[in-house]
Computed example of a mutant assay.
Amino acid sequence: MLVTIVSRIYRPEPSAASLFLGAIADELTGRGNDVVVLTARLPKRMKAPRYAETVRTFPVVRDRQGYVRGYIPYLSFDIPLAFRMLFMRRPDVVFMEPPPTTGVVVRVVCALRRIPYVYDAADVWSDAADQATNSALVIRVLRAMEGFGMRGAERLVTISQGVVTRARALGVRRKIAVTGFGADTGAFAPDPAVPVRPLFVYAGSYSPWHGAEALVDAFGIFSADHPGYTLRFIGNGSERELIEERAGAAGVADAIEFIPAMPAEELLPHLNEAVASMATLRPNTGYDYAFTTKAYSSLAAGCPVLFAGPGPTAPFLREANRHVRAGIACEYDVSQIAIAMAQLAADPSSAEERVALGRWTAEEHSLSAVARRVVDNIESAAARSEED
């Protein structure tokens, strides 16, 4: 088959979506399919390695941190995308990554050209946007666009049953396959030769619905009895100023570091030397069903996870702890987070435990296994369309 992947972000840009889409492209080409990726031109000074798939880029507007994020950047990708899809060689199926504006473009063009498409519903964007804006009009428009894009798909794939429930609430009646989300176990692996340092790492975006500022407050309490530790934020987000303010108020500004997002191979050493990685999800945001996918990469690297918040991540970690030493899950509460940090610092995982954690993650939650399930659905969507 000829498969087109549509996404504003693609490898080698550092993001969970890039790793995920790259694994899908690898699985598709490994099965003998031709793959064309329509994506954004890479940021300056970033070079793309050669892949088996064909990657076609187009200039886009990026925010101050270099990401395609926000209304204008999205439109700068989506408007040219409509023409790119109209005049490209007709594929057998399209696999698309949100935002919802991209879903609108893909549905309209695919309807005109009678192309089936599969929608990657990793989460529900309109739920997340509810925490970023007070405009009811914006939320209604975004929810309408998101539902429109989802309802036109031949089928959808997602990471958890919680997203299925929310998609049904948007009127989606198409088949939705829960394929999960895994770690790139080729890029993330333990290194027992790397000594663990007095370091906690938060790797990923820090937006309002994450509530990562609670980690800073907890770190302030923790640091009173555990001087010499560092809390390192690797990534980007709209809450940086708030986090910096909280760090100053807690008296730990000198112990908190901010590093831009980086590719997996550069992130790995940070995870290898950290006592634990950290992840949060603010409760009562309408986003409580979300899974914090950054946990997979940390576990694959053998680095335990400290998670604070609601949703499926906490029970996942508790179940994992039955097999390996995976970390600690607690409520989204500053005092509980501080206690969990102290517990991890007092008894850090040994090199053998970290190797066992990485091995278990590779066996149970590899990104390649998830990619196989997603590609099964892509190929099935194309076959079903041909039958119709």
Rank of each mutant, 00 (worst) to 15 (best):
A25K: 12
T29L: 02
V36A: 06
R45D: 15
F58A: 03
V61H: 04
R62A: 10
Y71M: 08
P73A: 04
L81Y: 03
F87H: 11
F87S: 11
V94A: 03
T102A: 15
C110Y: 00
I115S: 09
D120T: 05
D130K: 13
A136D: 02
V138F: 06
R140N: 03
V141N: 09
R143M: 02
A144M: 12
M145N: 13
M150D: 05
T158Y: 06
V163L: 01
G171I: 08
A177G: 04
A189Y: 15
A189T: 12
A193C: 03
A203D: 10
S207C: 04
H210L: 02
V216P: 00
T230N: 13
N236H: 15
L242Q: 01
A250C: 08
G251L: 09
D254G: 09
P260V: 11
E265D: 13
H270L: 13
L281A: 13
L281W: 07
Y287V: 07
P312N: 01
A314K: 01
F316A: 00
I328F: 02
A340L: 10
D347N: 15
P348S: 03
E352G: 13
V355R: 14
G358Y: 13
R359V: 15
E363L: 14
A369Q: 10
V370T: 11
A383E: 08
D388S: 14
